[in-house]
Write a protein that binds this DNA or RNA. Structure first.
Lengths: 204, 204
DNA sequence: TAGTAAATTGACCAGGTGGTCAAATTAAGA
DNA sequence: TCTTAATTTGACCACCTGGTCAATTTACTA
């Protein structure tokens, strides 16, 4: 049993909370173990006892963040399996917005990871996320094609790419709006409608 | 006259080259003035004489990078003013690809700036870029609407957003492919065709 | 209660950072 | 050539980093 797992729930939570805060606020290189230690109210030696190095702690944190993102996505995919494409898309965007609103720090770690930063293993993680998203959105597009909601002659790989680009960008923008306290100017419903419209009907 | 401008062209170029390399390779916090000094083959005191602080040097560099990007975009916009929407879009993507290929380090600084990092003034710069892109792509969409190439009932702001999201994401992906030596697997023409198709005809 | 094992601490380390400034070097003018 | 002014240098500073480990505190057992 790993030392960290032997700790009381309360102490584990305190350390997780501190680490999430620090890695959400600063990128990997700039985030400081000293800050984590101070936020968590434990000694430096302890933290390095629970997590051998900074990069091991970071692994733990982003795995947690990605796990939450994935389980959210899985849930919404399964719950909407019977819905038509546009409603499905709309639910996916909605659930993204909800996740961002409820877990802004985890969302920030996620965006930091995919959009930048030089964290260890970044390339591997990003590639994994890439194939994951390809499979996820690919399924949803395929379903829509099977139901004749989308023209089955479209280039699926490219469609996935466009969908992924727009969804991620939208969620990133929404996330920044929340962090800057401007999300009240964001008419979420209008955007969700626009996105689904765009992907079903295009610009024409 | 600023001290830096009094230097010989050769020396200025050496310092610029060193700075661009360092800020392209590492983000603002991690980039090191010591490394710049060593790469440029000058003393630390000199560098801080030319640029009062690290952030002043960074300002100089990213202003240069953005300036190059802007002039590239302006050029292609003016040169394609008479072309139909799809050809215009295609030229814009092409010129983005060319820029990335010819100036990969400046491109990297650009992507680092917009997609992440915690450089000084980041928010201000990103906001400025945002309005710039809004105006740029907005014009191009408006032109297409005026010529009845696009339905004039579409939501222009949203269309700009989608266009911006897809173009930026594509160029970022292409840039990473180049840096990883994988761009030969990227069928550029196929993608350019796909993008223009998508924006003129949608998924249907 | 005494003794032992496990968990926790924080002073300490080597190495790096951005930035400074007296001293040395170079350039310019008479 | 001598003098003065401008430029360049690098040792040095305070501060911060990830990581270590002997010493202390805590928990447990007999």
């Amino acid at each position: 049993m790993k030392p960290f797992e032997k700790l009381s729930e309360e102490k584990q939570a305190r350390i997780m909370n501190a680490s999430i805060s620090e890695f959400a606020e600063k990128d990997y290189e700039t985030a400081s173990m000293n800050t984590v230690v101070n936020l968590a109210g434990i000694s430096k030696g302890s933290l390095f006892n629970y997590f051998k190095t900074k990069s091991v702690l970071y692994d733990y944190i982003y795995t947690l963040a990605l796990g939450e993102v994935k389980s959210y996505l899985r849930k919404v995919r399964d719950e909407t399996a019977q819905l038509p494409f546009n409603e499905r898309l709309s639910k996916i965007v909605d659930s993204g917005v909800i996740f961002i609103t409820e877990r802004p720090r985890l969302a920030r770690i996620y965006f930091r990871l995919v959009y930048s930063g030089d964290s260890p293993n970044r390339k591997i993680i990003v590639k994994e996320l890439h194939t994951m998203s390809e499979e996820y959105l690919g399924n949803i597009i395929q379903d829509a094609m099977d139901r004749n909601e989308l023209d089955s002659s479209i280039n699926k790989a490219q469609s996935v790419f466009f969908l992924d680009a727009v969804l991620n960008r939208f969620l990133k923008e929404y996330h920044e709006a929340i962090e800057n306290g401007n999300h009240q100017y964001f008419d979420r419903k209008e955007w969700v409608k626009g996105i689904t419209n765009f992907f079903t009907k295009g610009f024409s």
